[in-house]
Design a binder for these strands. Structure first.
Lengths: 143, 143
DNA sequence: TATTGTTATACTCTATAACTATA
DNA sequence: TATAGTTATAGAGTATAACAATA
């Protein structure tokens, strides 16, 4: 009979600490043309190709007004395009411009460079643990 | 010969997404008496017992002025105490008050409740994967 | 009426630069 | 002079409430 090693509360606590510190590091590292929040939104748009602002807000786990602000800034910089959904004029369809795709590619790489470098020092088994953990986490919080 | 399954860049990208979404969820969930940033600082103080503001800032991965602000707010609410280090008057030693310890315990629990609940649905193996991943992450970013 | 997104507003989080106090 | 922390200031990130446009 094996004793459970990881209880919910303890694991939740260490996950919170690991998440907070990783996030602060991700925000702080390097000098960039776009912020981490913008990068994250752009990556989601790129993955979907085209999607409504509401759907994007849901995927990014922010409220619609917050996403409106992010998209407005990206639009002003020419990185995303907006258009009314022809079949429902209330909805706004968002996609990346060509510039947006280029910037995303470059910035994602430099933004994640420090992490990728550290990851390079890990064993294959450790990398797979992180990959599996990411999948579990994303499923846990609803995709 | 086995092909490496997880390359640095891909893993860095999925880790970024998982971290960002988990963080937003942690911030958004529930109604609280203290913010997530305050909870995080208080947990670090509690772990150390007593430590300098600079050391706390380093552990929390923020700059000293940011930590000064957090501590000032907590001090105003009576949750931490500050005193000059008797052997070096420049340094400020921070610790939790009795109220602080009580609030920390209660808030940590409710703050992490949604996560702990979701964790409860995981298999023992999945929980251990998350636990190992947290350890790897914390080591990766320097403790 | 209900839904989608925007505007107005405000608070949290964090940083850099300049300053004060102590060593 | 060098170090620890604070003050001043500003920008990023996010939310709620109220509104406008469309369905």
């Amino acid at each position: 009979m094996s004793t459970p090693m990881s209880t919910g509360p303890d694991l939740a606590a260490i996950l919170r600490v690991a998440t907070t510190r990783t996030m602060r590091q991700l925000r702080a590292v390097g000098a960039h043309r776009i912020t981490l929040t913008q990068l994250s939104a752009m990556a989601s748009i790129n993955l979907a190709g085209e999607l409504t602002l509401g759907e994007l807000a849901a995927r990014e786990r922010v409220q619609p007004p917050s996403m409106t602000r992010v998209i407005t800034t990206l639009y002003d910089h020419g990185l995303v395009s907006r258009k009314s959904d022809p079949s429902d004029g209330r909805q706004v369809l968002v996609s990346l411009t060509e510039d947006g795709r280029k910037i995303l590619q470059e910035e994602a790489q430099t933004r994640e460079a420090w992490l990728a470098e550290k990851i390079g020092t890990l064993s294959e088994e450790e990398k797979q643990t992180l990959m599996r953990a990411s999948d579990i986490l994303l499923r846990l919080i609803g995709e």
